[in-house]
Design a protein around this nucleic acid. Structure first.
Lengths: 197, 197
DNA sequence: TCCTCCGTACCGACCGGTCGGTTTGGACCG
DNA sequence: CGGTCCAAACCGACCGGTCGGTACGGAGGA
């Protein structure tokens, strides 16, 4: 089912307002005003204000999961796959900074059911990443100085923190930043101590 | 000026309520009820609901900055200093998970003035850490595969994400976790490729 | 005629902060 | 030691305003 123009405008309005003011501090009045529709229209397309929040992050994580599947399917040396994943995470996150920021701050306000759905999606990504690291460590490609879980936590740590400091117009492009992070992570995983290019 | 019992109870109540429900979703009524005082008492000690939020994080960051000064003053090999800082960050953060979680999620709701004060404190820590890395890179102690800024961002990325997943009763102690993170970071900084013990 | 889409009018609940006033405890005096 | 006094500590009813959500009706395509 495609997104109606009204739905799109509502989601966009909600994202930018939630990002600047927070979820609770944003009234549905403000959202529908910015989207140039009425409250009746909004409650026709969405079950609640919560539902808006859910859809915002659902769209982002779904896209990232699709990319994950593509990158894993393409295969390659573990180091290259990990670099590709980091690049994609940084690029999609910086391209949708507001969505990522809103989710990071407000997800805990969702009711348990939709919350669990989003968590399951996120977990799938984490586990795929961790398994990749663990396999590399098992076959000697990677050093095991830190557990695969810890490495995963470090990577998602930086990525999830991005919305808090990254400035889209700044001197560092998402790609450059991603490569630097990947260089550092792969250096930490390298058994011989030098990251491959 | 010491903390009166009433102030302490108010801060504790506010932290736990903000952590579970969020700042906006928590009413002043709830806070004073849990602290077993009245609203009048609260507004006697704090200027506003915002002021509560400010004090919560102010106490944590001030403590961390004091530790920073102590660790820097103690001196030592750059690798050991960095490890000591990571250990302290992880230990103080896991010891005050609720405070850290509340701040991460709600700081942007503070008025600009108190916000700037907290940011300045945080910035001081970041810059001290970055300079430490940069000096090590300059004298050849550390590899420069990633810039000192990026390394700093990675470290604070994990630390700031801690409240989102760390379970105090879990299998990994704060100290173990901190050491693993330090091992990984120092491995990424090591010019010869093996982390020192 | 029926159903989707959307506008208008409205509701009950609740919120942060204020304000006039009361209680409490210790400093000071005789 | 008893009494006076005053500032700090504390009380809780109350206000103006806002909020998320609902009820209901009409327009217009199928």
């Amino acid at each position: 089912m495609a997104l109606s123009p009204v739905q799109g405008r509502l989601l966009d309005a909600a994202v930018s307002l939630f990002a600047t003011q927070g979820f609770d501090a944003t009234s549905v009045q403000e959202i529908v005003a910015r989207a140039a529709v009425t409250k009746g229209a909004m409650y026709h397309y969405f079950r609640s204000k919560d539902d808006l929040l859910y859809e915002i992050y659902h769209r982002l994580i779904s896209e990232q999961l699709a990319h994950l599947d593509g990158i894993l399917a393409a295969g390659g040396v573990p180091g290259d796959v990990i670099r590709a994943l980091i690049v994609d995470l940084v690029e999609t996150t910086t391209a949708r900074l507001a969505e990522a920021a809103v989710f990071a701050r407000e997800m805990h306000k969702l009711p348990t059911e939709p919350m669990a759905a989003l968590r399951a999606q996120r977990r799938r990504y984490h586990e795929a990443f961790r398994d990749l690291v663990a396999r590399g460590q098992a076959d000697g490609t990677f050093a095991a100085v830190a557990s695969a879980d810890t490495v995963t936590l470090v990577v998602f740590g930086v990525v999830n923190q991005l919305p808090q400091w990254y400035q889209p117009g700044g001197p560092t492009s998402p790609r450059q930043l991603a490569d630097e992070i990947a260089d550092f992570v792969l250096a930490g995983l390298s058994p011989s101590g030098v990251a491959e290019g």
